[in-house]
Amino acid sequence: MIYILPIILFLIALFGIVVKRNLIKIIISISIMEYAIFLFFALIGYRVEGVPPIEVEGVRYVKFVDPLPQALVLTAIVIGLATTALLVAIAVRIYQKYGTFDIEKMRKLKG
């Protein structure tokens, strides 16, 4: 049942995306959603009394945690950084054009 914690984090971020109207707040919420998913993956791969999946010479078959979700999350973290940077760049461009981060005002300005 410990899986419920990342899901609650995810849902808080989802609530933020639905309710908030500031672009930067929405970007922050998306980042928090990503973190929740990473935490979920790391929790799935965990083994009780496991050790990090690094083979030490001389020690044969100690109990490793699952390395596969860790590899996937490692890829996803870097992609998350790139996506956040792109979103922030687009938000700054929108601010330069409209002078506001409010998505409601943007729609009105478009006329």
Partner: peptide
């Protein structure tokens, strides 16, 4: 959760995204 690689990458990426 015994994932030191992830912790290192997460710290670096977190600092970068906060700065951005």
């Amino acid at each position: 959760l015994e994932a030191p690689d992830l912790a290192i990458v997460q710290i670096v990426v977190e600092i970068l995204s906060l700065v951005i």
